[in-house]
Amino acid sequence: MSRIVGRFEETRASGRAALIPYVTAGDPAPEVTVPLLHDLVAAGADLLELGVPFSDPMADGPVIQLACERALAHGTRLRDVLEMVREFRRTDTDTPVVLMGYLNPVERMGHEVFVTAAAEVGVDGVLMVDLPPEESGDLSGLLEQAGLDPIFLVAPTTSEFRLRHVAAAARGFIYYVSLKGVTGSQNLDPAALGARLGAIRAISDLPLGVGFGIRDAATAAAVAQVADAVVVGSAIVRLAEQHPEAPERFRTAAAEVVREMRTAMDASRTAAPAAV
């Protein structure tokens, strides 16, 4: 069983939604990333999403674009990101790590070289934003052979026909993009979300993570009532922007956001489920 599947079994058994923070590797500086990941776990993260910086992050809003630019300015490359996971795994062998990014750095490294290295350093899942299932055959096959989960996105615009296709290709969990837009947008509609997740559950048994519009603890709590996992990215990454010269203050602030979300999410699950 993959670490991701195992972790979702645990959170399901304990009746809570998983919290998945996203950070861009190398932002604001490469040496911050591994200590930051440990801080996020200590603050209540169940899984981690580690962003691989890319020069042209087409599906991301300004917050993560700037994070990519900061990371690239420090020379953070895909092989550096893999080394960060290796370093993280020295002291944490439990928390699943998903690499999230764009395909081209992986293309350049070569699918086989990438998958072998990712498996070796302890990556658990790979989500390539610009790689829909139709184009992913080769990479998905290699990932699965290596015991890694190919993670795919489902969007509000995904038809039922496509949903079946994505569900068949996906492993680990399905990442539901909660809104039409780029990361960090602010118009998540919790009411529509519940109905939509129900439709996905009718087709797939995989856990459902929701991301792209989780801006604060209240939104996280609302989403936690209907989703198996809450993914929060821009709300954390924007803190790196606010503390450009003080990485330790960024780490403290990021952990604080995760802790608040954790508390709010757990409280919302304990309380009687509200209509969302």
């Binding site: 599906a59 610009d130 790689l131 829909p132 615009t157 038809s159 496509r162 993009v177 837009g181």
Partner: peptide, 11 residues
């Protein structure tokens, strides 16, 4: 091919 985020696949 078609290498875009899922949101655009329907369009």
């Amino acid at each position: 091919g078609r290498f875009v985020a899922e949101t655009l696949m329907g369009a």
